[in-house]
Computed example of a mutant assay.
Amino acid sequence: MRKLMTAKTTAMAVLALLAACSQAGEAADAPEPPAPAKVGRDAAYEAAAGEPEGFVRALYGVYAATGQASPAPGRDPLLGRTLNAMVGADHNQALGKGRRPYLRKDFICDCTGGQVVLTSVQTAQADKNNAEAAVVFTVDGQEKRQTLKLVREGMSWKVADVLVPGQAPLTERLLKVIE
């Protein structure tokens, strides 16, 4: 009788272990919940490593995120080196001379605030490091159009210039005001 009890106890212990192992295996095989989607500038930084269109969509998505501070003028990781230097020079020279900077509004949305909604993006990639994105968007319901010149610096797309219909390219306008 004792051998029967020991065999029965051993069998139950083995079954309990097998059940525990199969439950642990099921838990390990279950997919992890997706990471929270990045928003605002974090989403744009991540998208910069992908395709030009995704980068531009994320760039305009920054305006939907609230409470995110912009980097200091001339230090924006979403802008190319040359444009960043020009923006910084405009800001720093203006402060040094006691005048207002030429750039008094956000040149990506051509606005000083409001609700920005991207309505269309058409990209064309000239080569692996240069692209253009024709964008149509609204600011508080007012339609605007412009073309973003993009450059790949390292592994990331950056805004190199902004072309607004009827105006000289942003870089040309900045060259006239910085010394």
Rank of each mutant, 00 (worst) to 15 (best):
N129F: 07
E51P: 05
Q122N: 09
E143F: 08
A72L: 08
E143M: 13
G54W: 10
T123R: 02
Q142D: 07
A160M: 08
V117D: 01
G54E: 10
C109N: 07
L118Y: 07
M5C: 13
A94M: 00
K128V: 11
M5W: 14
K176M: 08
A11Q: 10
R104M: 13
I178D: 05
A16H: 12
F137H: 02
P52D: 03
W157C: 10
K149S: 14
T112L: 11
G114D: 02
L174R: 02
G54S: 11
Y45L: 15
T82R: 08
F55N: 04
G113Y: 10
Q68T: 05
A133F: 11
D110P: 04
S70H: 02
D110N: 13
R100I: 10
A43R: 05
C111P: 04
R99T: 15
P73V: 07
M1L: 14
L83W: 00
P77N: 01
G25K: 11
R145N: 12
Q125T: 14
E46V: 13
A126C: 06
K158P: 07
P77H: 01
A69W: 00
G50P: 08
M5I: 15
L4N: 10
R100W: 01
Q167K: 11
V14H: 09
A44D: 00
K144M: 11
E53S: 12
G166H: 08
T9R: 14
L175D: 03
Q122S: 09
V87W: 00
V62D: 01
T112H: 12
S70F: 01
R57V: 14
A85M: 02
A124R: 14
A64W: 03
R57E: 09
L59N: 04
R2I: 15
I108E: 03
M86K: 06
M86F: 01
Q93A: 02
R57Y: 05
Q122G: 07
G50A: 11
M5L: 15
L83A: 00
G61M: 13
Y60E: 04
Q146P: 09
A69R: 10
R99S: 07
G141W: 08
L174I: 09
L18F: 14
G40T: 11
A44M: 08
L163Q: 04
C21S: 12
N84P: 00
K158E: 02
D110L: 15
L18A: 15
A72H: 04
V62Y: 10
G80R: 00
C109I: 12
A64V: 13
D90N: 03
V177C: 04
V56P: 06
T112Q: 13
G61C: 12
